[in-house]
Simulated scan of single mutants.
Amino acid sequence: MTTLSTHALDSALGRPAAGIAVALTGPDATHLAEATTDPDGRVRFDVPIGGGTHRLTFATGPWFAAADRATLYPEVVLSFEVDATEEHYHVALLLGPWSYTTYRGS
């Protein structure tokens, strides 16, 4: 089985995005796990994941609101395809109030 981690960075402030709630769903929208980014903006999910389309949903609206910052995105949903023969996936989010980007890290 494959493992998964994520990292959220606040690109506007140049620091980790700590305290964002993140939900992981698997194929057929199966709920797999929930977590909150740590002080370094990271989550390592403790559940093995199989192949297929998975989603990470970041609750960005409440996170920006708690910091009294406006945002265009109440949530960010990252969909990605998992090849079960791969050992690990790291899906990163670079987040700003008016834009975001993502990439597969190592």
Rank of each mutant, 00 (worst) to 15 (best):
Y103V: 07
H90Q: 12
D38W: 06
G14N: 08
G50P: 04
L4Y: 07
A33T: 10
S106K: 15
A33K: 13
T2F: 09
R55H: 08
H90I: 08
L72V: 11
T3I: 10
E34V: 05
D68I: 02
F58A: 01
P27N: 13
H54N: 06
Y73Q: 10
A59R: 08
D83A: 01
S99G: 14
H7N: 13
L24N: 04
Y103I: 03
T102H: 01
H31A: 10
T36H: 09
V77N: 04
H54I: 07
E81Q: 15
E34T: 10
P27S: 13
T6L: 11
S11C: 11
T25C: 05
L13H: 14
L95A: 01
S99V: 12
A18P: 07
V91M: 08
R44T: 08
H88D: 09
I20L: 10
I20Y: 03
L72Y: 14
G61M: 03
H54A: 05
A70M: 13
F58P: 00
T60I: 03
A70N: 13
R104M: 15
G41K: 01
A33I: 08
G51E: 09
V77W: 04
R55L: 04
G52P: 04
T30H: 12
G19A: 06
L95G: 03
R44Q: 08
Y100G: 00
P48D: 13
A92T: 13
S106P: 15
V47C: 06
Y89K: 02
L78C: 02
Y103S: 07
L4S: 01
R69L: 15
A35W: 06
L72F: 14
S79T: 12
A12R: 14
L4D: 05
A84P: 04
T37I: 08
T6D: 08
W63P: 01
A65E: 15
M1L: 15
S11L: 14
F58L: 02
P48A: 12
G52W: 06
T6Y: 07
G51S: 08
T36Q: 13
G96S: 04
T60R: 01
T2V: 14
D46R: 11
L78R: 07
T101L: 06
S11H: 13
T57C: 04
W63L: 00
G105I: 14
I49R: 02
A29K: 14
T3R: 15
P27F: 09
D38K: 05
D28Q: 15
Y89E: 01
F64S: 02
T2Q: 13
A18V: 06
T3V: 09
T2L: 12
H54T: 06
D38Y: 05
R104C: 10
L32C: 05
T30N: 11
G14R: 09
A21W: 08
T6F: 07
L9K: 11
T2D: 11
L93Q: 00
L93P: 00
T102Y: 00
Y100R: 01
G19Y: 06
F45G: 00
I49G: 01
T37Y: 05
G96F: 02
